[in-house]
Amino acid sequence: MKVIDLSMSLYTDMDVFLGDPQVKIELVHSYEKDTWELRNLNMGSHTGTHVDAYSHMHKGKASLDEISIERFFGHAQVVELSEALPSEIGLFFIEEVGAEHLEKIMDSNPGFVGGNITEDLERMLLDREIITYTGLINLELIPRGKTFMFYGLPLKIKSGDGSPVRAIAIIED
């Protein structure tokens, strides 16, 4: 079994989408002063590697705390649009994929979609209640077309539109 971390590290002043809150992580308690460490985290809900709830782009759609936890993990593949897409598993794209490919993606009935997807495609997928993941790294380490287990669990934020995740791929030998 091989585990691949697909998550960015979070740190103060990291790059964020234009208009999103800047990331600030500050040490509040230290071992030297308090005998423990504790940090204050300030960031947007779509910082770094993150998942998008349907409500992110569609008023009245389900938020993170309303979506079943089972929707945030499952079998997946890193795929290319030039090939046939597998059915009923998560799809991750390394090359940029836009709204013009929605029909092909929807024909495969994916559990979730992520990687290098455009904002227009993300909006369309969320409207169809397909969870999206962005900010994933290391997808190129996963063999194309090999099915793996993906986990990208969000914090259970009440009325949450998105959440940073610790995303991993587990590849069986």
Rank of each mutant, 00 (worst) to 15 (best):
E80H: 12
H50K: 03
D65N: 14
P154T: 03
F72S: 06
A76L: 09
P21G: 01
H75W: 11
L141I: 11
I4G: 04
S87P: 05
F93C: 06
T147N: 12
I105Y: 09
G60Q: 02
K146Q: 15
D173C: 04
R144S: 15
H101S: 15
G114Y: 03
I168G: 03
K24M: 02
V97T: 14
E96T: 15
S30V: 00
I25W: 02
K33V: 05
I105S: 11
Y11W: 07
G115M: 00
L102M: 10
M1T: 12
I137C: 11
N138H: 11
K104W: 02
N138R: 01
I157W: 09
S159W: 12
E119V: 13
Y151H: 15
F17H: 09
G111Y: 06
S68V: 10
T147R: 14
P164E: 14
R71L: 07
S30A: 06
L91G: 07
H56V: 13
L41V: 11
A167H: 10
G115V: 00
H50I: 09
G162W: 04
E172H: 13
A99L: 12
V16P: 03
D15L: 07
P110N: 02
A62E: 13
L27M: 04
L38C: 05
E88Y: 00
I69H: 06
H46T: 11
N40W: 04
L125E: 06
I137T: 12
N109R: 13
E66M: 13
S55V: 07
L141N: 11
D161Y: 08
V23F: 03
E70M: 13
R128D: 13
S68D: 14
S9R: 09
G60R: 02
G160D: 04
P86V: 02
L81K: 13
N138E: 04
N138D: 14
Y151L: 15
M57R: 14
F93P: 06
E140N: 13
V165E: 07
R123Y: 14
A99R: 10
R123M: 11
G145E: 00
I157A: 07
E66N: 14
E103F: 13
V78P: 01
L155E: 15
Q77H: 05
F93M: 02
Y11D: 03
D34Y: 01
R128C: 03
A62W: 05
L153Y: 14
L81F: 09
W36L: 08
D120S: 13
K33P: 00
T118K: 03
N116T: 12
G115K: 01
F72D: 05
R71A: 12
I89G: 04
I170V: 15
L121V: 10
I157N: 00
Q22C: 01
F73M: 15
R144K: 15
G74I: 11
A167R: 10
E119M: 10
N40G: 05
I170C: 09
N138I: 06
P154D: 01
L121T: 05
